[in-house]
Amino acid sequence: MAASAPAVEAVFNAYPKPVKARLLALRRLIFDTAKTTKGVGALEETLKWGQPSYLTAETKSGSTIRIDQVKAEAGQYAVYFHCQTNLVETFRELYPELRYEGNRAILLGAEDKVPEAELRHCVALALTYHLGKRKNGAK
């Protein structure tokens, strides 16, 4: 995993401890999933809207993923996806047991067991979102 930019590190360091630990684990999961998902390539870690964000800058294969604490709810954090995609709609169909915020996020609790397999699949779908569209458009 590439070293973070100082601005990204500063955001992680500002999180409350339990949420920070979960977000750092989520960050590792995103990088690991990118590494093991065909067609994704290297991820770029940056800040978008003040949130740690992960872009497939090298291959343009996916939709940006952002992670952050949920400001309105202590001990909650989320994985955010572009709301103009059908990603969260797809995740709802695949994993109705997860908690969602509209068409833009999967909500998680710092005290809850992490649904790792489900999150890996959702992250992989987001990181390859444009690959699927290109393939479908080429038919």
Rank of each mutant, 00 (worst) to 15 (best):
residue 19 V to H: 09
residue 23 L to E: 06
residue 23 L to W: 01
residue 23 L to A: 10
residue 23 L to H: 03
residue 23 L to K: 01
residue 25 A to L: 03
residue 26 L to F: 02
residue 28 R to W: 07
residue 30 I to F: 06
residue 31 F to G: 11
residue 32 D to A: 14
residue 33 T to K: 08
residue 35 K to V: 12
residue 35 K to Q: 12
residue 36 T to M: 12
residue 36 T to N: 14
residue 37 T to S: 12
residue 38 K to T: 09
residue 38 K to I: 09
residue 39 G to E: 08
residue 39 G to D: 05
residue 41 G to D: 02
residue 41 G to K: 07
residue 43 L to F: 02
residue 44 E to K: 15
residue 46 T to Y: 05
residue 46 T to H: 02
residue 49 W to V: 04
residue 52 P to I: 03
residue 52 P to C: 01
residue 56 T to C: 15
residue 57 A to H: 07
residue 57 A to W: 04
residue 59 T to I: 08
residue 59 T to E: 09
residue 60 K to H: 08
residue 62 G to E: 10
residue 63 S to P: 03
residue 63 S to I: 03
residue 65 I to L: 10
residue 65 I to E: 06
residue 66 R to Q: 14
residue 67 I to R: 00
residue 67 I to G: 02
residue 68 D to H: 09
residue 69 Q to R: 05
residue 70 V to P: 01
residue 71 K to M: 10
residue 71 K to I: 08
residue 74 A to V: 07
residue 78 A to R: 03
residue 79 V to H: 08
residue 79 V to A: 14
residue 81 F to R: 00
residue 83 C to Y: 12
residue 83 C to V: 12
residue 85 T to H: 06
residue 86 N to I: 00
residue 87 L to V: 08
residue 87 L to E: 01
residue 87 L to I: 00
residue 88 V to D: 05
residue 90 T to K: 15
residue 90 T to G: 12
residue 92 R to M: 12
residue 93 E to H: 12
residue 94 L to G: 05
residue 95 Y to A: 12
residue 96 P to D: 09
residue 96 P to S: 13
residue 96 P to E: 00
residue 97 E to G: 15
residue 102 G to K: 10
residue 103 N to P: 04
residue 103 N to I: 14
residue 103 N to H: 14
residue 105 A to S: 05
residue 107 L to W: 01
residue 107 L to Q: 08
residue 110 A to N: 05
residue 110 A to F: 00
residue 111 E to I: 14
residue 112 D to T: 13
residue 113 K to D: 15
residue 114 V to M: 15
residue 114 V to L: 11
residue 114 V to Y: 06
residue 115 P to N: 14
residue 116 E to P: 08
residue 117 A to H: 13
residue 118 E to P: 06
residue 118 E to Y: 06
residue 119 L to W: 08
residue 119 L to K: 01
residue 120 R to A: 13
residue 120 R to W: 08
residue 121 H to S: 13
residue 121 H to L: 11
residue 122 C to H: 06
residue 123 V to H: 06
residue 124 A to Y: 01
residue 125 L to E: 14
residue 125 L to A: 12
residue 126 A to P: 08
residue 127 L to I: 11
residue 130 H to F: 07
residue 131 L to C: 10
residue 132 G to Q: 01
residue 132 G to T: 03
